[in-house]
Nucleic acid binder design. Structure first.
Length: 466
RNA sequence: GCUCCCAUCGUCUAGAGGCCCAGGACACAGCCCUCUCAAGGCUGGUACGAGGGUUCGAAUCCCUCUGGGAGCGCCA
C-alpha cells in the first residue's frame, strides 16, 4: 500500500517565528508538496506559562504571509485533531495509563534540587549527566510514603538498558545510539501535563505523520521518541534533522544579528517570495537556477540535497532576492509602498519610474520625498558640481521648462546652449533636480515633479552659482 | 566534562578517487552599453582549515589536530 506523505510543522507559541523555524516549516511544507502529500500544523502549547495566544495569531499570520498553507491544523480540523496540544490532555493521559499498566513508566518523586545535585555530581566526575534511576524500583509502599509526604510524582519512561537503537535519518543517514546513554525521561510532569517528548511523538503518530523534518537540536530526542512509540505500538515516522541557522559570525542566530523574525522582515517590507528564495538555498542546494517561483521550488526541492553543516544567514543575499522580487512584483503588490504624498493619479507612473531603484518601502518614501517634498540643502559635493556647470546650464533649463519642454527637450536645449554633453550635461541637472547623484531615470522623474517644482529647483541651483 | 554532527571562494553551494591547477549564485572590482548614475551585458580576483597516511592518482577514503554546531531539563 502506498502511504501518502504527511509532514508537519509543530511550533510552540512562545515567541515570534524566526527565520530558523520558518525554514524548518518551509522545508517540511516543500517536502509534503513535492511528494503530493499533506502538511499539518500543530500548536504545541503544553507549556501554559510560556505559550501566548498572541504568538499563535502572529504565527498563523506569518505562515499565511509566507504562503505555507496547511491541510490540517488550527481552524482546519479533521478527525485526527484537535491541533492544539492544550486540548489533547485526555489523549496523552490514556497513553500514560497504558504505559504504567505495562510497567514501562513509573512515578518519580525526585525534586528539582535533588536532580540538580545529582547532575552536578555526575558532571564533576566527568560523566554525562543523566537520570540515575533513583525512583525506578520504588515499592508500592515507598511510593505511598512519598505521596503521603505530599510529594507530587512525575512520570518517567523506563528506558531499557543495553540496547542499541538505530534509525535512518532523512538527512544525516544512519544514526546509532546506546540506550544506556539515554536515561529514563519524563513523559508527564508532576502537574499532570504531558512533556514535549511524549506529546510530540504521540501526536505525530496519531496524526498520521510519516515524515518529520525538524531542527538538529532534536536528534537526541529521536531514539527516545522511537522507543516510546514502539512500546505504544504506533507506526514510526521517518525523521530528518536540519542543521541550525547561524548568524554572519557563525554563532547561533540571535537578536544582535538584526531582523531575524518573519514579522520583522514583513514589517520592513520584504516580500515573502524573497524570503522563501533565500530560505530555499540555505543548507539546501537547489535544482533551480536564479529566481524560483513557489511551483519551481516545490519541483526543485531535493531532500537528499539538504546539508549537514550549519548554514550562515547572509542578509546581502536576502537583499538580492528582494530586489528580484520587486522587479517581478505586480504593480498591485507594490501599491501600499507608495507614500500618501504621491497624488493618486501619479501612483502608477511613480511605481514605474522608481521600481528599478527600490529594495524596501523606505526607498519608495525617499523617492517620493525627492520628487514631491522640499529637498535637503545641497551638499558641498553637489554644490561643486552645480557651480562647475555654471549659470548658463540652469538658465537654459528654466527657459526650456517655460516653453513646455520635457526631459529630452530640456536636455537638448541645455546641450545646445552650453555645449555640454554626457556626464557633464546630466550630472548637474540631476544634482539640481534631485540633490543626489544617483537615482531613477530622469525623464519620468521630471514628468512626476512637474515644471513648477523643477523650475524652483533650477532657480535654487542658479542661486548657488552666484 | 562526556556524546554526536559538520568543515570547498567573504556568504550560500556543486563536487560521492582521475571529467577539478575545482563549477554556479550573491557580494566585490573592472569593462561595455545608454547623451549621467542606476538597471542591463561581459570579464576578473578570491576557496578544497592544518598535519599525517592510503593510492599510480584525493576536495573526494583513514587518522590526529584546529575550528564551528548540537545534545546531556518536570524547555520545547
Amino acid at each position: 500500500m502506498v502511504t501518502l506523505t504527511v509532514s508537519r510543522f509543530a511550533p510552540s507559541p512562545t515567541g515570534l517565528l524566526h527565520l530558523g523555524n520558518a525554514r524548518t516549516a518551509f522545508f517540511s511544507w516543500l517536502y509534503a508538496r513535492h511528494r503530493g502529500g499533506r502538511f499539518v500544523l500543530r500548536i504545541e502549547d503544553t507549556d501554559a506559562s510560556r505559550s501566548r495566544p498572541e504568538h499563535v495569531e502572529a504565527l498563523l499570520a506569518d505562515m499565511a504571509w509566507l504562503g505555507l498553507d496547511f491541510d490540517a491544523g488550527p481552524g482546519k480540523d479533521t478527525p485526527e485533531g484537535p491541533y492544539w496540544q492544550s486540548q489533547r490532555a485526555g489523549i496523552y493521559e490514556q497513553a500514560f495509563n497504558q504505559l504504567q499498566a505495562m510497567g514501562r513508566a513509573y512515578p518519580c518523586y525526585c525534586t528539582a534540587l535533588e536532580l540538580e545535585l545529582a547532575r552536578k555530581m555526575q558532571l564533576s566526575r566527568g560523566q554525562a549527566p543523566r537520570y540515575a534511576g533513583t525512583c525506578r524500583d520504588l515499592t508500592l509502599d515507598q511510593r505511598a510514603a512519598r505521596e503521603a509526604e505530599g510529594r507530587q510524582g512525575a512520570l518517567r519512561f523506563q528506558v531499557p538498558g543495553g540496547r542499541e537503537l538505530r534509525y535512518q535519518d532523512l538527512v544525516r543517514g544512519e544514526q546509532v545510539f546506546s540506550s544506556d546513554a539515554l536515561g529514563d525521561f519524563i513523559i508527564q510532569r508532576a502537574d499532570g501535563s504531558a512533556s514535549f517528548l511524549a506529546s510530540n511523538a504521540i501526536d505525530d503518530a496519531l496524526m498520521g505523520v510519516t515524515d518529520v523534518l525538524r531542527g538538529e537540536d532534536h536528534v537526541a530526542n529521536t531514539p527516545r521518541q522511537l522507543l516510546l512509540l514502539e512500546v505504544l505500538e504506533h507506526r514510526l515516522p521517518r525523521y530528518g534533522h536540519l542543521p541550525l541557522l547561524v548568524g554572519d559570525d557563525g554563532a547561533p542566530l540571535a537578536k544582535r544579528h538584526g531582523a531575524t523574525s518573519v514579522s520583522e522582515l514583513r514589517g520592513l517590507g520584504y516580500r515573502p517570495e524573497a524570503v522563501l528564495n533565500l530560505l530555499f538555498r540555505l543548507g539546501h542546494s537547489a535544482a533551480v537556477e536564479g529566481w524560483a517561483t513557489n511551483a519551481g521550488m516545490i519541483e526543485g526541492f531535493r531532500p537528499e540535497h539538504l546539508g549537514r553543516a550549519p548554514a550562515r544567514l547572509d542578509m546581502a543575499q536576502l537583499t538580492h532576492w528582494q530586489k528580484e522580487a520587486v522587479k517581478l512584483a505586480h504593480a498591485d503588490q507594490l501599491a501600499d509602498w507608495v507614500p500618501a504624498t504621491v497624488p493618486a493619479d501619479d501612483k502608477a507612473a511613480f511605481i514605474a519610474a522608481v521600481r528599478a531603484n527600490l529594495t524596501l518601502p523606505a526607498d519608495a518614501k525617499a523617492m517620493a520625498d525627492m520628487i514631491y517634498e522640499d529637498l535637503p540643502p545641497l551638499t558641498p559635493e553637489l554644490e561643486a558640481i552645480v557651480r562647475a556647470a555654471g549659470a548658463a546650464t540652469f538658465e537654459a533649463a528654466v527657459l526650456a521648462l517655460d516653453s513646455g519642454a520635457d526631459w529630452s527637450g530640456l536636455t537638448r536645449s541645455v546641450r545646445e546652449a552650453t555645449g555640454r554633453k554626457g556626464r557633464d550635461l546630466f550630472q548637474p541637472l540631476r544634482a539640481a533636480l534631485t540633490h543626489a547623484l544617483e537615482g531613477p531615470e530622469m525623464a519620468p522623474l521630471l514628468a512626476l515633479m512637474g515644471p513648477l517644482r523643477a523650475r524652483a529647483r533650477f532657480e535654487q541651483a542658479l542661486t548657488a552659482c552666484q
